[in-house]
């Protein structure tokens, strides 16, 4: 088991955002977490990344608890997040944004290789490399955000709503890229409101409702599930 959340409860003051979440992610999988607005998806990812600390429960990464470990140390351990809204550094250039992705790495040659790999994956970033992050379009910013996370060579990549605010054609290409990244060996935990898409591109899925896991199954089963169809697939 690469990642395991065990009865995790995270609060904002007295707002109970997560009321006991349990999730498991195996090495090599794409697991999705779907749910409506305010269900607690982003809170789950921020708890894994160490930005938020749960009041109860445990987060295990490779069998080791990472609760109360600093976010930068969690990155060092191999967990990277592409947060909701992309959070590009707007006043840094594309190149500088990518450099920061590799902030903790010292292997110069490996970093160089990864730049090449990323520019193969997202050719547009090579053209824009001297531009400020804030001047990129939404789609380009999403690519940059994913690329920046990949620069850390994560073992586990957390993606928070990569489809948000993107044109449908772009969404497909971003998801194709996500699949490619997974095939190259990175485990992915994907958070989405777009359930249809997320279930098509993942192996397993969890449905989260108001801070609790409502359903858990393989993605193909969830796509057929009546409850999911009604609530999330608009059928």
């Amino acid at each position: 088991m690469l990642l395991k959340l065990d009865n995790v409860k995270t609060y904002y003051g007295n707002i109970r955002a997560l009321k006991g979440i349990s999730i498991e992610v195996e090495e090599g999988e794409i697991v999705c977490l779907i749910g409506g607005n305010g269900a607690g998806k982003s809170t789950t990812l921020m708890t894994i990344s160490g930005v938020l600390t749960p009041v109860e429960g445990n987060v295990l990464y490779q069998g080791q608890s990472i609760v109360a470990v600093r976010p930068d140390n969690i990155v060092q351990m191999g967990i990277c997040q592409v947060p909701e809204g992309r959070m590009i550094f707007p006043l840094l250039t594309v190149m500088e944004n990518l450099d920061l992705g590799a902030y903790l790495r010292k292997d110069k040659n490996g970093i160089k290789e990864d730049f090449e790999r990323i520019f193969r994956l997202f050719p547009v970033l090579r053209e824009r490399r001297k531009q400020h992050g804030g001047t990129l379009s939404g789609g380009e910013q999403q690519m940059l955000a994913i690329a920046r996370a990949l620069m850390a060579r994560p073992r586990l990549l957390l993606l928070d709503e990569p489809s948000l605010g993107l044109a449908p054609i772009l969404v497909d290409s971003i998801f194709e890229t996500i699949r490619q990244i997974n095939e190259q060996g990175t485990t992915i935990l994907l958070v989405e409101q777009n359930a249809q898409l997320a279930l098509q591109f993942s192996h397993r899925g969890y449905v989260i409702e108001t801070g609790e896991i409502a359903l858990a199954d393989s993605s193909t089963e969830l796509l057929k599930n009546e409850q999911v169809k009604k609530a999330y697939l608009g059928e």
């Binding site: 990344s49 976010p71 930068d72 840094l92």
Partner: peptide, 24 residues
């Protein structure tokens, strides 16, 4: 410098800076 870049990153978004591995 690397550190200057980190400074500017922290200035622009502390959460994201932490998520790239910077000790804020």
């Amino acid at each position: 410098t690397r550190w200057g870049k980190a400074m500017r990153a922290v200035a622009q978004n502390q959460t994201m800076a932490a998520l790239t591995g910077i000790n804020v």
